[in-house]
C-alpha cells in the first residue's frame, strides 16, 4: 500500500484516496513544435528502477494535484511537494541523495556525484 502525504491538506492519504497522474515535470510541446518534440512529449516516458518523480491528485480529498518522489523498486517515498514547480525542490533532492547516493533521473541527479550524471 502506497501512502503519500498531501502537501496541501496534510492528510497521509492511502493510495485509494489518490489518483495517479503519470510522470512529473514534463515540458509541453504543442503548436509550433517539431514532430519529434511532439512525439516525445506524448509518448516517451521514463521507466526507472529506482528514483522516480510522479504527479498525483488527492482525488478523494482536497482535490489538489501534487508531486511525489519515490522509489519504484522499494516503494519508499522520499517526499511530496507542491504542484507549482517545474523541477524537484532542493530539500527533496537532498533527501534522495542521502538515501540513494549517485542517483539520477532525466536531467536531475545527485549533485555531489558528477560521475553518475547523464547527459
Amino acid at each position: 500500500m502506497l501512502i503519500l502525504e498531501c502537501p496541501y491538506c496534510g492528510v497521509k492519504a492511502e493510495e485509494s484516496e489518490l489518483s495517479a497522474g503519470g510522470e512529473a515535470h514534463l515540458t509541453r510541446f504543442g503548436p509550433g513544435s517539431s514532430d519529434d518534440e511532439f512525439h516525445d512529449y506524448l509518448f516517451v516516458r521514463e521507466n526507472p528502477k529506482g528514483v522516480h518523480f510522479e504527479r498525483w491528485r488527492h482525488a478523494n480529498g482536497c482535490g489538489k494535484w501534487f508531486h511525489a518522489a519515490r522509489c519504484t523498486m522499494t516503494l519508499e517515498v522520499f517526499g511530496t511537494y507542491s504542484a507549482q514547480t517545474t523541477e524537484p525542490p532542493q530539500e527533496i533532492k537532498d533527501v534522495i541523495t542521502a538515501k540513494r547516493p549517485g542517483w539520477s533521473w532525466r536531467n536531475v541527479s545527485d549533485e555531489t556525484n558528477t560521475e553518475g550524471q547523464r547527459t
Binding site: 491538506c9 492528510v11 484516496e17 478523494n60 480529498g61 482536497c62 482535490g63
Partner: peptide, 10 residues
C-alpha cells in the same frame, strides 16, 4: 473535518 471516500464514493 475530513474529505475522503466511503467505500466507492466521495
Amino acid at each position: 473535518f475530513r474529505r475522503t471516500r466511503f467505500a466507492q464514493i466521495a
